[in-house]
Computed example of a mutant assay.
Amino acid sequence: MMISSGDLVTRKSYQHDIIFRVKTQAASIVKLMGEHIRLEADAPLDDLEKVTGAEFHRRKNKVDEQEAYSYRLFRQDYRLLKEKREAEAGSGYTTGKEANYFQIPPRILHIDGDPLFLKKCIALYEQLGLQVHGQYLNEKEMPDQVLPLIEKVRPEIVVLTGHDAYSKAKGTTRELESYRHSRYFVEAVRNIRQHYPNFDQLVIFAGACQSHFESIIRAGANFASSPARVNIHAIDPVYVAARVAYTSFMDHINIWEVIRNTISGEDGLGGVETKGLLRIGIPYTKDQEET
């Protein structure tokens, strides 16, 4: 069977459970990237089967339904947060006058090891009305490149994600060396925290599919994947960042409410107590609209 870079395939040995994109091939070993989840894998050529157009669209429709459901959940939560902000902003008016406020959401730096996933995430940030700077970086480059990017962008939220995978052949789930890219996420987070130690001034999400959750959290991330070493969906990090971005800095974030908006759920994502980063101001003026 002829396999080329960019082809969509499944693995016979895993009962065709996941659709992958072919990244590279060396001899009879093929490097694969998840098409909808943040998983990287190697597979022998004879274990692969190309995905038909009909099968791809069947699975894509299922993924689209999951994404639409997560989006609806987020929009519901956003409306509740907005109603709370409006009530608080209008509490100083005694004549029933409508609250006239503006909001300043935080800047987001999203660094991704997959350019296609990055593009998809940027589109979702924009759909959610958030200001984001996206940067593609190979996971191995993140520890050295993350601080210069932070100095340039000056974000309040940093998302570090891409592809990862646990390999049983390399060791137990407790050993960081058993993971394809987890150590790079850990090093990048640790480097950030050496310069930005306050968890509530710079919020970090880090990790990908099957990542070593505990090590990433210990390094200083507010949120990370993957507690149960499961695969996480490509856009899950966006919903985590968006929840932080639209929660007032006066409020603590309910971790469960963050996770329930994601496709992966609590097996795929977790975190520590964190404050929101949204600030509101009064009054709203036309000049602000023009700028």
Results as ranks from 00 to 15, higher is better:
Asp42Ser: 14
Gly268Ser: 04
Arg79Trp: 00
Asp42Lys: 07
Ala208Trp: 03
Tyr14Phe: 11
Glu67Gly: 05
Ala41Lys: 11
Ser248Tyr: 09
Ser248Pro: 12
Ile18Lys: 06
Pro237Leu: 06
Ser182Tyr: 07
Tyr184Trp: 15
Ser167Cys: 13
Val132Arg: 02
Pro237Lys: 05
Leu277Ala: 03
Leu278Pro: 12
Leu149Ile: 08
Leu81Ile: 04
Leu160Cys: 11
Gln66Gly: 03
Leu202Val: 09
Thr94Pro: 01
Ala221Leu: 03
Ile19Asp: 09
Lys275Asn: 15
Glu273Trp: 00
Lys97Asp: 13
Gly162Ser: 03
Ile216His: 13
Arg260Gly: 04
Leu73Ile: 02
Asp251His: 08
Leu202Ser: 04
Thr262Asn: 03
Ile216Gln: 14
Arg218Val: 04
Glu156Phe: 02
Lys120Glu: 15
His212Gln: 14
Leu124Asp: 05
Pro105Tyr: 08
His252Pro: 04
Ile235Phe: 10
Ala188Ser: 13
Met142Ala: 13
Ala206Met: 11
Glu86Thr: 14
Leu32Ser: 11
Ser91Ala: 15
Ala228Phe: 10
Cys121Trp: 01
Pro143Thr: 02
Gly129Tyr: 00
Ile192Leu: 13
Glu65Phe: 11
Gly92Lys: 06
Val22Gly: 06
Gly271Arg: 01
Thr94Leu: 10
Arg183Met: 12
Glu88Ser: 06
Ile280Pro: 07
Arg75Gly: 02
Asn231Gln: 14
Ala99Asp: 13
Val244Lys: 01
Arg75Phe: 00
Arg190Gly: 08
Asn254Ile: 05
Ala208Arg: 06
Glu35Cys: 08
Thr172Leu: 07
Ser264Pro: 15
Glu126Met: 01
Asn191Cys: 04
Leu149Asp: 09
Ile150Arg: 09
His212Phe: 07
Tyr246Ser: 05
Asp200Val: 02
Ala234Phe: 10
Glu126Ile: 00
Glu257Gln: 14
Tyr125Ile: 05
Ala234Gly: 15
Leu278Arg: 11
Thr161Arg: 04
Ile3Pro: 10
Glu83Thr: 09
Phe117Arg: 03
Asp251Phe: 00
Ile19Pro: 09
Lys84Gln: 15
Arg193Lys: 13
Phe199Leu: 14
Asp17Ala: 15
Ile122Pro: 09
Lys60Ile: 02
Lys286Asn: 11
Leu128Val: 01
Glu214Lys: 10
Tyr239Pro: 12
Lys12Leu: 12
Tyr78Pro: 10
Leu278His: 09
Glu86His: 12
Ile108Asn: 04
Ser182Lys: 05
Arg21Met: 06
Glu289Asp: 15
Phe74Ile: 01
Leu124Met: 12
Gly220Met: 03
Glu289Gly: 13
Tyr69Trp: 12
Lys50His: 04
Glu257Ile: 01
Asn231Leu: 12
Lys60Asp: 15
Thr94His: 07
His233Phe: 11
Gly92Ile: 03
Ile192Pro: 12
Leu130Thr: 03
Arg183Phe: 05
Leu202Met: 14
Gln210Tyr: 08
Glu266Arg: 08
